[in-house]
Amino acid sequence: MSRTIAPHPPTTKPYAVRADAHPNPTAKRLLKLMDRKKSNLCVSIDVTKCEDALEIVRRVAPAVCMVKTHIDIMEDFTPAFTAELARLADEHDFLIFEDRKFADIGNTVALQYSSGVHRIAEWSHITNAHPLPGPGIVTGLGKVGKPLDRALLLLAEMSSAGNLAVGDYTRQAVQMARDAGRDWVVGFIAMGRVDSDGDDDFLVLTPGVGLVAKGDALGQQYRTPRQVVYDSGCDVIIVGRGIYGIEGDAAAVLAEAEKYRAEGWKAYEDRLIQA
């Protein structure tokens, strides 16, 4: 998806300044550590074995502000996995984003978030939800997450070809976030500044990022870190296979993560200078 949006006013402010004004503790923490580590890189861990996932995290941890998990694809899940993930997050100064994409009525998502084998709210700093079910999904998740100082993102747009999260759907997602308040809904998964008609200063996390713009056989569309951060005003780049799928040892994977971190950070610094 090719999209360029003029930078929204909050994107002209440094992450640390935005942190001071943010009402959500997790968003505040994220913005501060992004400034501290000079990283706006989130690595998506899309493997199915717990030890493989932890090994990727250990390799990329120095370069990231966040790691993104899909806990329901882990074939050998035990609570020991999330305990170790949380320990690594504390040790290496990053947040955990469970990409659960909740999409049900409020009562059901509250149980999915708090209960079952995964107990997502106990270890994931940030999670996300589709706005499709209506504001009840935000309320239901908030009953669990807000007392724990967690944060929620709404899926306002997606990076896959032919997706339906466009136009009025996206506008309604933004309004739902505004109605809920930034003390709980801190931003969006989106391709650009979907909140460009206001001064809310939501966080925008963007998937489908590659050092070379291209696509894959399953409809994923890739844009470069500069296109995402500088041109479209987004805050965090999400990268998966482009980092840990390369040939090489731990040092090679970290070096690839470092390339993305450097590209994303340079685009952010240039955005501040341009303002």
Score class of each variant (00 low, 15 high):
residue 118 H to E: 00
residue 142 G to K: 05
residue 210 G to E: 14
residue 136 G to V: 00
residue 51 E to S: 14
residue 196 S to E: 08
residue 168 D to E: 13
residue 76 D to W: 09
residue 184 W to I: 00
residue 42 C to M: 15
residue 154 L to H: 08
residue 177 A to K: 02
residue 79 P to W: 09
residue 70 H to P: 00
residue 243 I to C: 04
residue 160 S to F: 08
residue 203 L to C: 06
residue 66 M to E: 11
residue 140 G to T: 01
residue 270 D to C: 00
residue 234 C to R: 03
residue 133 P to F: 00
residue 268 Y to L: 06
residue 209 V to L: 05
residue 172 Q to I: 00
residue 168 D to H: 14
residue 25 P to N: 03
residue 133 P to E: 01
residue 192 G to Y: 13
residue 202 F to D: 11
residue 42 C to Y: 10
residue 21 A to H: 09
residue 118 H to R: 05
residue 63 A to M: 14
residue 15 Y to I: 00
residue 51 E to M: 13
residue 102 F to D: 03
residue 229 V to H: 04
residue 68 K to S: 11
residue 112 Q to W: 01
residue 64 V to E: 15
residue 232 S to D: 14
residue 179 D to M: 07
residue 273 I to N: 08
residue 111 L to A: 11
residue 112 Q to H: 07
residue 124 S to K: 09
residue 87 R to I: 06
residue 232 S to P: 00
residue 158 M to Q: 05
residue 118 H to G: 00
residue 250 A to L: 07
residue 210 G to L: 10
residue 268 Y to E: 03
residue 44 S to C: 14
residue 220 Q to S: 12
residue 180 A to E: 03
residue 143 K to G: 00
residue 266 K to W: 07
residue 9 P to M: 04
residue 203 L to Q: 08
residue 29 R to S: 14
residue 195 D to Y: 10
residue 207 P to M: 05
residue 220 Q to D: 04
residue 109 V to S: 10
residue 208 G to I: 02
residue 63 A to T: 10
residue 251 A to H: 08
residue 196 S to L: 13
residue 79 P to V: 06
residue 23 P to L: 11
residue 122 E to S: 06
residue 225 P to N: 08
residue 61 A to L: 14
residue 57 V to W: 15
residue 25 P to C: 03
residue 273 I to V: 09
residue 158 M to L: 13
residue 19 A to P: 06
residue 162 G to P: 11
residue 66 M to R: 05
residue 225 P to M: 09
residue 3 R to Q: 15
residue 258 E to P: 08
residue 139 T to D: 02
residue 93 D to W: 13
residue 134 G to T: 01
residue 109 V to T: 15
residue 169 Y to C: 01
residue 73 I to L: 09
residue 216 D to E: 02
residue 180 A to P: 07
residue 34 M to E: 13
residue 166 V to N: 02
residue 33 L to T: 14
residue 111 L to P: 02
residue 131 P to D: 01
residue 182 R to N: 12
residue 214 K to D: 15
residue 197 D to I: 05
residue 100 R to S: 10
residue 57 V to M: 15
residue 27 A to D: 07
residue 40 N to A: 04
residue 258 E to H: 08
residue 7 P to T: 04
residue 254 L to W: 09
residue 166 V to S: 03
residue 7 P to A: 07
residue 222 Y to T: 08
residue 264 G to V: 13
residue 208 G to C: 02
residue 168 D to K: 14
residue 91 E to D: 13
residue 194 V to Q: 02
residue 94 F to V: 15
residue 137 I to K: 01
residue 77 F to C: 06
residue 212 V to I: 15
residue 69 T to W: 12
residue 197 D to R: 12
residue 271 R to T: 11
residue 55 E to R: 10
residue 5 I to T: 14
residue 158 M to I: 02
residue 215 G to N: 14
residue 166 V to Y: 07
residue 194 V to L: 03
residue 124 S to T: 10
residue 228 V to A: 15
residue 10 P to K: 04
residue 109 V to K: 04
residue 57 V to P: 15
residue 189 I to R: 12
residue 19 A to W: 08
residue 80 A to F: 09
residue 172 Q to K: 12
residue 255 A to V: 01
